[in-house]
């Protein structure tokens, strides 16, 4: 089995903590291995969301996942945001903190989108420096997720997976491999998703995301609004064979169904993991 950097644990199979499920979680304490928490939703509240999070963090392992860090932004880092993120990580005893390889806005604006980076040497140097800075401030290694994207830059001089690998090495950070994002971007940009998952540095992958998407015919949008396609699960299995047991999270963020529907979908990951483990196909197993 691939030895993880920093000894990050395989938390098993988790789901995202979402407001619509608060009642179910508080009344049932369901048999979920862990929860992923959207950091920004809990940073500025002293109300019920934070109270629920405290209850959840007392009972389950938690990892923080952000959308507003803007690691690729050319604006200065937002120190207030980072201080609050650090405080939330300490409060919840978060196992790790992740965000996306993207930028979110410039000139002080936040578009609240995960905007695409050009994969250039300049962008790589810039992002490595920022990840190092953030890791120092948070006093923990940052985990970076591969994005889904809808444009490609003519200026890019390397593939996304090469950029990610060099970023992880240069900044000494972890990776969150979203196999649905790989699938979405592979369709949008016309590359082989198997090449992507084969090239990502396995020892740095500390978490997986699996999700559904929306096919628009000419392109795919990463909506997190459905069950994952068999092709996405196949990518998960392929990647898993290189990384071995790794914390896995099922994302469902639009048209969120009842808790049990999301949980059942997440547990498909468990079935895949068990099959692979029984077959002894995990790298090094």
């Amino acid at each position: 089995m691939t030895k993880k950097r920093w000894g990050f644990p395989d938390l098993g199979v988790g789901i995202g903590l979402r407001t619509v499920h608060f009642g179910h979680i508080l009344s049932r304490w369901p048999d979920v291995d862990w929860f992923e928490v959207l950091s920004e939703n809990f940073m500025d509240t002293g109300g019920r969301p934070l109270w629920v999070l405290d209850q959840v963090a007392e009972r389950y392992p938690v990892a923080l996942h952000g959308v507003s860090l803007g690691i690729g932004n050319t604006d200065p880092l937002n120190r207030e945001y980072l201080a609050k993120l650090k405080g939330l990580a300490e409060r919840t005893k978060a196992r790790w903190v992740s965000d996306h390889l993207c930028w979110t806005g410039i000139l002080g604006r936040n578009t609240h989108d995960l905007l695409p980076m050009p994969y250039t040497e300049e962008a790589l140097r810039h992002t490595i420096a920022r990840v190092r800075q953030v890791s120092e401030i948070l006093e923990r290694p940052l985990v970076i997720e591969n994005p889904s994207s809808y444009v490609e830059f003519a200026a890019s001089t390397m593939s996304e997976w090469e950029f990610l690998a060099r970023l992880a090495e240069g900044a000494d950070c972890g990776l969150l491999l979203d196999v649905n994002n790989v699938y979405v971007s592979s369709f949008n940009h016309g590359f082989d998703p198997r090449t992507y998952v084969d090239q990502v540095p396995a020892e740095r992958v500390v978490q997986y995301h699996v999700a559904g998407h929306t096919h628009k015919g000419t392109h795919i949008i990463d909506t997190h609004s459905d069950h994952a396609l068999p092709e996405v699960w196949e990518l998960y299995r392929r990647a898993w064979q290189r990384t071995g047991p790794t914390a896995t999270l099922y994302e469902w963020d639009e048209s969120i169904p009842e808790f049990d529907v999301v949980h059942t979908e997440a547990r498909k990951a468990l079935a895949h993991r068990e099959q692979l483990q029984e077959a002894g196909v995990a790298h090094g197993a």
Binding site: L115, H126, A154, A155
Partner: peptide, 19 residues
């Protein structure tokens, strides 16, 4: 052939498209 656009200027231009 790619247009030589530093990251910061690319982001300004791209944000202008988005918003």
């Amino acid at each position: 052939m790619a247009l030589d656009l530093p990251l910061e200027r690319m982001q300004r231009w791209f944000q202008g498209m988005v918003v």
